[in-house]
């Protein structure tokens, strides 16, 4: 396993240059280029602001929409990151088949390419969010903003683990990627992104919020950035545990199947 990680490091120039290329080609031929990456969350934010300011649930707090817009954008950013990492991660061996057939690189590189690409989009969206907090929030920058960085690292590692497992599963059974897409759609509504977790807690479904692995990452990224609160240590412990299991399962799957998966491609 340590050899595997060393090899991933040795070939860092390879996958880093591919990540860069993915980013460049994604917006090749478009006028705004990478600006689209900025515009996408900005447009989403505008929509959220308009919607929330018009459909204010509580007339006694006319400014509530300001906070809702920030919270929802943060939730969507983390959700999009994890969802895309998993869905695109499914295809990561199939898309890199030519390289796999050419050279015996460590398999962890290909999901890493997916995760890194998505991380850049996450960072761009979160940058937009920081601006939004400054504009709509009560303070310019939350003093707890530093806590976002370790949370992002955790989310990236978690993403790598699930993307790796999904990549192997999809190589063996192509149906898996479709199953995941459908399941993700259902999971979106189970996760308090467009609504507050209070809604589920009031229905005696609070445990759904507590165990939801996506929501814990939303919490540890969103709260320090938007509310200026550091979540309780047990939430970090849960996120850390989820990350450790995901990475361990990913590494375990590599060790288990790395000598066989090429015959399935």
């Amino acid at each position: 396993m340590i050899d595997h990680m060393k090899a991933v490091w040795t070939f860092r120039y390879f996958w880093l240059s591919l990540v860069k290329m993915d980013l460049v080609t994604r917006y090749r031929r478009s006028v705004l280029g990478i600006g689209w990456s900025m515009l996408h969350p900005l447009a989403m934010t505008t929509v959220l602001c308009v919607v929330f300011s018009h459909f204010n649930a509580d007339p006694t707090k006319p400014d509530a929409w300001r906070l809702y817009a920030q919270r929802t954008l943060a939730g969507l950013a983390v959700w999009e990151f994890l969802r895309n990492t998993l869905v695109l991660g499914c295809k990561s061996f199939l898309q890199n088949e030519a390289y796999i057939r050419l050279s015996p690189l460590p398999y962890g590189i290909y999901p890493l390419r997916t995760v890194m690409g998505n991380s850049i989009h996450l960072l761009i969206t979160l940058t937009v969010l920081v601006i939004l907090v400054a504009v709509l929030g009560t303070v310019y920058v939350q003093p707890t903003i530093w806590a976002v960085f370790p949370a992002i690292i955790l989310a990236m590692l978690f993403g790598w683990g699930i993307a790796t497992i999904a990549a192997f599963a999809t190589t063996y059974f192509h149906d898996v990627s479709h199953l995941i897409e459908v399941a993700a759609q259902a999971f979106f509504f189970l996760t308090p992104i467009m609504y507050e977790p209070k809604l589920l807690i009031d229905q005696q479904l609070g445990w759904l919020v507590t165990v939801n692995p996506v929501y814990v990452f939303i919490e540890i990224i969103r709260e320090p950035l938007v509310s200026g609160i550091i979540p309780d240590w047990d939430r970090y412990a849960y996120a850390g545990g989820m990350t450790a299991s995901s990475v361990a399962l990913g590494l375990g799957t590599i060790a288990w199947l790395q000598k066989r998966v090429i015959f399935q491609l």
Binding site: F11, L18, L102
Partner: peptide, 9 residues
């Protein structure tokens, strides 16, 4: 570049 890095450069 990609090919070169793939070959360990």
């Amino acid at each position: 570049n990609y090919r070169g890095y793939l070959q360990g450069e």
